[in-house]
């Protein structure tokens, strides 16, 4: 089955290869580096193919203005922003509605993982900057933010791991790139905390049959477990490096 877009991009060829030559379940090259910023309390860069995301964490720190603080727990704040040159058309610097919505859903994806009760009346700030966008920026942001939180020494029930799955015709695909994101038939970003088994970000657009929907979820969890291993490895890397010396 070959799937071609209106402007002749081959999304899926007869050999089952995708626009960038990947198999249906193949991930783009992933790189994760933790502790990349001097000023932030925790930080990470996550790259998934052409998508490059930087996350910085500050806190827990005193909340100002004080009336916004919670007496029994910390507040988590998340700001997701894209650089103006991360996309084809220059994005104006002020936050778009998309950036505001993504900030919210990313915050809600991270919140269940962070043990906020340990820091009453404080705030933990997460700032995410998309340096280059090539599909899957929200899931890369969640992967980066959860590493940055761990790097800041904030107690967590587990790392949050995220991936987008979707479909091209009847074919489930994993880790959608920009073109697949735009022209594919469905896109389903998912975040998951492997230790607690909770799904904390769940969105979909496009259409999907109930069977394919189930298949997508199954494939997503499988992939998320793989990415979770990479995250753990990225966190431990600098200490393991010292150990070898």
């Amino acid at each position: 089955m070959t799937i071609v877009t209106k402007d002749n991009i081959i999304l899926l060829n007869e050999k089952g290869r995708r626009s960038d030559g990947r198999k249906w379940n193949e991930l783009r090259p992933i790189s994760m580096v933790v502790g990349v910023l001097e000023r932030a309390d925790g930080s990470a860069i996550v790259e998934t193919g052409g998508t490059k995301v930087l996350a910085a964490v500050y806190g827990p720190k005193e909340m100002y203005p004080k009336h916004l603080a919670m007496p029994d727990r910390a507040i988590l704040r998340v700001a997701y922003r894209m650089t103006s040159f991360s996309v084809e058309e220059r994005k104006k610097p002020h936050p778009s509605r998309r950036e505001i919505e993504l900030s919210k859903v990313i915050k809600e994806a991270l919140e269940p993982a962070v043990i906020l009760e340990e820091f009453p009346r404080t705030v933990i700030d997460v700032y995410i900057l998309v340096l280059q966008a090539d599909g899957g920026t929200r899931v890369a942001s969640i992967n980066a933010a959860s590493l940055a939180l761990a790097d800041a020494g904030i107690p967590m029930k587990g790392l949050v791991t995220a991936i987008a799955v979707g479909r091209l015709g009847n074919q489930v695909i994993v880790d959608l790139n920009d073109v697949e994101d735009k022209y594919g038939n469905a896109d389903m970003p998912i975040a998951y905390i492997p230790s607690t088994g909770e799904i904390t970000l769940f969105q979909m657009d496009g259409t999907m049959s109930p069977d394919l929907f189930d298949k997508c979820l199954e494939v997503a969890i499988e992939t998320l477990n793989k990415i979770h291993e990479m995250q753990k490895e990225a966190l431990k890397r600098k200490y393991l490096k010292n150990k070898k010396d």
Binding site: L37, R39, A56, Y58, A79, R81, D125, Y127
Partner: peptide, 15 residues
């Protein structure tokens, strides 16, 4: 020329 000094870079910068 435009500068974006966001809190990614420093706790002194604000959104």
């Amino acid at each position: 020329i435009n500068t974006e000094f966001s809190p990614v870079a420093s706790p002194l910068f604000e959104l």
